[in-house]
Computed example of a mutant assay.
Amino acid sequence: MYKRFSDWMSKLPRYLLAVIVTTGVVATAYITFNLMSQGENVTASNHLQVLASNSTSLLNVSVWDQQTESYSGTRDVKVYRSPACTCCGNWIKHIQKHGFKIQADIKTDEMEAIKQKYNLPPDLASCHTAIIDGYVMEGHIPADDIKLFLQQQPQLAGLAVPGMAIGTPGMESGNTKQPFTVMEFNHQGEVQIFKKYQSY
């Protein structure tokens, strides 16, 4: 096998071989640097093992992980979700990365009753309902939008991302990204646009 591989490498043009080698070195150095900066114990003996187990997660960082809004207010979150829902758990992980703390993660089959209790307009319904500082946060809302909304402390009931658009936090699926809109709503059920995402 080694002989066949070396024969194949020897037939490559020198410039292409240089690109392959350089790319591999740069990628390895980048991943190693990131692992070490995260406190990963990288030694000569476990270097390849650590790279193999961590490189995938490093290269597949969600676009939603980057924080653009600061927030110093209440971070306790109560989440209501269906026991069968997995994407809700992914959204919870997303907001935790932004510093929110899950005070209660309540799995219930009575999601419709929960939405009615908090006067969520039916057209805004999604899979999970969260309560943060008295505000209703419905569906896969980006954490930075939640932080911006909470900073403003508006006289509104909350935010919602209706439905379950592919590409929203917790609903990532490769490069598939559907446009979606974050809606804000008041206690009378009146709705308007908070932010639109056409491309992200």
Results as ranks from 00 to 15, higher is better:
A29I: 07
L59I: 12
G39E: 08
M111W: 00
S70D: 15
E110R: 13
N34T: 10
I102C: 03
N34H: 14
A44Y: 05
S72L: 10
N34Q: 15
V63G: 06
V79P: 00
T56C: 09
C85A: 05
S70G: 06
I95N: 03
A84M: 14
H47R: 07
F33H: 15
D76H: 06
V50T: 12
K115P: 01
K107P: 01
N90A: 15
S62Y: 02
H98V: 08
S57Y: 08
H94A: 09
Q66W: 09
H47K: 11
G24L: 05
Y80A: 02
Y71L: 05
N90I: 08
N90F: 10
W64S: 00
K107D: 04
T43H: 07
Q66C: 05
C87N: 08
N60C: 05
V50K: 12
V26N: 03
G89V: 05
I31N: 10
V79L: 02
V26Y: 05
Y71G: 01
T23S: 13
S45R: 11
M111D: 04
T68S: 13
K78C: 01
L35V: 04
C85T: 06
H94T: 08
L58Q: 14
M36S: 12
L58E: 12
T43W: 05
R81G: 02
T68G: 04
A104T: 06
Y30A: 14
Q38F: 08
L35A: 13
S82P: 08
Q103F: 09
V42F: 06
Q103M: 11
Q67F: 02
V77L: 01
S62M: 04
V63Y: 08
A29V: 10
Q96K: 14
I106L: 11
D109E: 12
S82D: 11
V61I: 14
C88F: 01
Q96V: 12
I95G: 00
L59A: 13
G89I: 00
Y80N: 04
H47L: 12
S55F: 11
D105K: 05
N60A: 07
N46H: 04
Y80R: 00
T23Y: 14
T43Q: 07
K78W: 09
W64C: 04
T68Q: 09
I95S: 00
K101A: 12
S72D: 13
W91A: 00
G73L: 01
E112V: 14
A84C: 12
K117Y: 05
D76A: 11
A29D: 07
V42A: 01
T43G: 03
N34D: 11
N34Y: 09
E112M: 14
T43K: 09
N54P: 04
D105H: 01
I31V: 15
T74W: 02
K78S: 10
D76M: 10
A29L: 13
E112H: 13
E110M: 13
T74H: 11
C88H: 03
T28Q: 07
